[in-house]
Simulated assay, not measured.
Amino acid sequence: MAGHSERYGPGVPKELDRYLVPSEEIVFLLRRHWVVIAEPFLTTLLGLVVLAAVGGYVGEAVSTVLTVGWLLLLSRLILVVWEWWYELVIATDKRLMLVHGIVTRKVDIMPMSKVTDMRYDRTVTGQVLGYGKFVMESAGQDQALSTINYIPDSDLHYQQISQLIFAPGEPRLAQKAGGRNSRVPVTEPEDAWWRRKD
């Protein structure tokens, strides 16, 4: 994922030039919420505390076993953080994508046109820490990408996806309200009093 996209500019990995069609417009690009790496981090930290507290009071063989066990926890943490860093969730005006995998890169796709319904779940922990889960339903067969969990700033991203799915012709939500690209759609009723010819 080294380098930046020539097509989309800074902040967008060069790798995405391979997967995105030139006419696609990126709506958002993100990594899953940091809570994904919280458990491995806390487990590794707890293992280090146990190793430091007990290591001096046990025999050399037990101390070696504890050290090897902690090194395995540390290796797991490094692998989880690496996977988290290289995993990207991308929404474009045409599809939702999940790019993941370290050795073998995989791209799961859900075309926006195939989505018939969408559910948005937020557990109590998700409400406190600021993440949610999207569950997409499509007509016909199962799609490669139907559930995305641990989406940060999920309220905003839910609104953006909903607007793409259920109101594709309307102007999209800008990242920040009142931003330079934000537009408010204005429609006038056909039978308004100023249009009547009495």
Rank of each mutant, 00 (worst) to 15 (best):
W34I: 07
A38C: 14
K14V: 11
L45G: 00
G55N: 03
V62T: 10
A2W: 12
Y19G: 00
W82I: 01
Y131P: 01
Q163L: 11
T43D: 03
K197M: 13
I102N: 03
G178T: 08
A91Y: 06
W84V: 05
R32T: 00
G178A: 04
D117F: 07
R31F: 04
V54G: 02
Y158N: 00
S182H: 12
V103I: 13
L51E: 04
T147M: 14
P152W: 11
Y131M: 14
L66I: 02
R180Y: 09
T44S: 00
S182K: 10
I165R: 04
K197Q: 15
H100C: 09
G130R: 06
P111H: 05
D93R: 09
G56T: 11
A61K: 07
D198S: 14
R31W: 04
Y86M: 05
H100N: 08
E6Q: 05
P13I: 02
G130N: 05
V99H: 01
S162A: 14
G59D: 01
F28P: 02
G130V: 14
D121A: 13
D198C: 08
L79D: 00
K106N: 10
G130Q: 12
E6H: 13
Y19K: 03
T44V: 01
P168N: 00
Y131F: 15
W70D: 00
D153F: 13
E60G: 06
E60T: 15
V36K: 01
R180W: 10
Q127M: 15
A91S: 03
L46W: 04
P152A: 06
T104N: 13
V27N: 00
R196G: 10
L156W: 14
V49Y: 14
E60Y: 10
M110H: 09
Q160W: 10
W34H: 08
Q160S: 07
S113Q: 14
S182T: 04
T43Q: 06
N181W: 08
L73H: 13
A38T: 13
M112K: 07
K94Q: 10
E25K: 15
I148T: 05
G56P: 02
E60V: 03
A53W: 09
M118S: 03
R105E: 12
E137P: 04
D155Q: 12
I161K: 05
S162N: 12
L79Y: 11
G56V: 09
G11I: 01
E190C: 09
R196Y: 11
I148V: 05
M136W: 06
M118R: 05
I148H: 07
L71M: 00
I90H: 10
W194T: 06
E24H: 04
Q127E: 15
V115K: 09
A139Q: 01
R7F: 00
Y86E: 01
R195A: 14
V62E: 04
D17P: 02
A91C: 14
I165M: 04
L45D: 01
G101Y: 09
V115D: 06
G55V: 07
E190K: 15
V184S: 04
Y8G: 01
D191C: 10
Q163H: 13
T123C: 14
L74N: 02
W70A: 03
R119N: 09
A91R: 07
F134V: 11
L42A: 06
V54Y: 02
